[in-house]
Amino acid sequence: MAADGQQHPLKLYFWIWGLLFLFSGASYATDFLQHGYFRWGLILLFMFLKAGFIIGIFMHMAWERVALIYAILGPPVVLLVLIGLMAVEGDYTELTRLDFFSAPLVPAGHEAGAHEGAAGAEAAH
């Protein structure tokens, strides 16, 4: 390990700085596009490019030893499981809500024999 730590030519930093500005401008420009897979793809593309350059060059991860790289960048991969589960759960919750809120609410005690509807109305409160 060099006593002077991470030392790289200034030119590299200016290049990355410029690229980050470019990608920031590009991601801002996506706001003028219609919502859809093209826009979302571009948002993700510029996001990952910016994140990669910040972590790799500005945070010097590209020059660190593999032990450190994997110890830091490996664990966040498990977050994909959480994201996947929450996406499924979110869709499910929305469908349940749509189903529940679209059901006709029967005021409690107003209709004889409509116990199931009354129970549903009470649960809504």
């Binding site: 664990p75 966040p76 959480l82 994201i83 929450m86 996406a87 979110g90 929305e94």
Partner: peptide
């Protein structure tokens, strides 16, 4: 780096929570 790793999890939980409530509201 280890502190930042833990912070990554906090922010990821926030953003995942945001995704969940945004997906689940009709």
């Amino acid at each position: 780096w280890i502190f930042l790793l833990s912070d990554t999890f906090i922010f990821s939980c926030f953003l995942t929570g945001y995704m969940n409530v945004r997906l689940s509201t009709p």
